[in-house]
Nucleic acid binder design. Structure first.
Lengths: 235, 235
DNA sequence: TAAAAATATTGATATAAATCACTTTTCGCA
DNA sequence: TGCGAAAAGTGATTTATATCAATATTTTTA
């Protein structure tokens, strides 16, 4: 789902192009022929940065964080993938190792597709080919935005933007005006905003003061998205 | 050219996969059939973020910065493209607008290839297809590294890393132990490192103190790459 | 080659954010 | 249902870097 139209440009359109949508049934079936589906508990690791790729992963249902870990073992979340998204294809297409790690953010059902099946399908399906090119190009735009965000914006702005993006991913059965619950630890939010947990807590309570969010225990509710967007667009 | 082997992992392998290398002659000729070549002066703009793409650009000779401009018109350089690299394909492949702007960093000879020719060639050449998939996947890895760099590293580390990367791009007729001259303004360096010009100047003079670089007027020479790398890897 | 313009440098100060040390709350589960 | 571990929150302090104001240097050009 897109947030186009809310932002001036769709600068923060983090919508996930579904790579497999509209794939001809034959192609889809070939791809999925030897898949193995598995339910992962929250926090389980699918693959690790630097590892050699054996195949790709399809999120049947759930959420996965893609992240990098630096030498101080501080984690940086690059992206939050949602139901319907594909994972791990970068490593296979670049003929190299996984550029990041992936771990479930909640209990998730995930299908594994062997590398050979993915490559075979890729060779035969022009549509899959084009979808990948399109998705990868879109990812470039999204990551370029991230670079600018981290290089030039304050923690406050970074967190605001990440909350806006997360809201899109966490809203289900949404009706206008409804608060969206974001189910993510302060630590993960910190990792997503590129800061320390303490700062997330402080900024979050600022946002609470300003009537943008509410919290109940660990739960975070986005109550006024418009205000958040204004803050993110300000300066 | 790669800096693999210098870094522990090739974390900062910013080498540019040449998309057009090894392309069958027939494909290459078709792609280039209607190209128009033009010499740009330093600082000329090839395309602007948000613009509708009319084609792609091939750097015959020269250097181009890809950058984004935020609401305060502060510039963030995302990438420095070198001789032999292709520009502007993201916009065409994603079927959207240019995600960033491009401007020459020095006098450069650049060929423009109409969108139709690029797409036609893409449709007929499986090799071009695969090269694009590979390059885009590699770009993902590079940008993911950038995100982590900006989110978690100090200005000192950021500048050190950017200098290491620039050194690869600015070295010509290089012999071991030779100093490499980086011909870039303090403002552009600041934009590349995500900081203000003043801070670049200060950090640069620190590096000079430490014997890593030398300056002559505006010119910057990387004299001890090993020390720079140690600094970038430290922490 | 001198004057003007662009670019770079320096120092002082303000501000944001990291870090540390600690307390409190929440929640899974025994 | 209450205990213990994990997660969240708070306050004080330090540190890095942004910002401002002014000067100096380099390059361009007339």
């Amino acid at each position: 789902m897109s947030i186009q139209g809310i932002f001036p440009i769709d600068k923060w359109d983090f919508k996930s192009e579904s790579i497999l949508a509209d794939l001809p049934v034959a192609d889809f079936d070939r791809l999925m022929a030897r898949k193995s589906e598995h339910v992962y508990k929250k926090g389980e690791i699918l693959f690790r940065e630097g590892g050699y790729p054996a195949g790709i992963y399809y999120i049947v249902e759930g959420k996965v964080k893609k992240y990098k870990t630096d030498k101080n073992s501080r984690e940086q979340i690059i992206y939050v993938a949602n139901t319907g998204e594909l994972l791990g294809y970068h490593a296979i297409l670049s003929e190299y190792r996984y550029p990041d790690s992936a771990a479930t953010l909640e209990e998730s059902t995930i299908a594994f597709i062997p590398k050979e099946d993915f490559l075979a399908c890729l060779q035969q399906s022009a549509i899959l080919n084009n979808r990948l090119l399109k998705t990868l190009s879109h990812e470039f735009a999204v990551l370029a935005n991230s670079v600018t965000l981290f290089a030039q914006n304050s923690v406050r702005e970074r967190l605001a933007l990440q909350l806006i993006v997360l809201r899109e991913k966490y809203k289900v059965n949404f009706e206008p005006g409804m608060a969206v619950e974001i189910n993510m630890s302060r630590d993960d939010l910190a990792s997503l905003a590129g800061t320390a947990r303490e700062n997330v807590v402080r900024v979050l309570s600022e946002f609470k003061e300003a009537g943008m969010v509410e919290t109940k225990g660990r739960k975070i509710f986005i109550t006024d998205i418009k205000k958040l967007i204004d803050l993110a667009n300000a300066r």
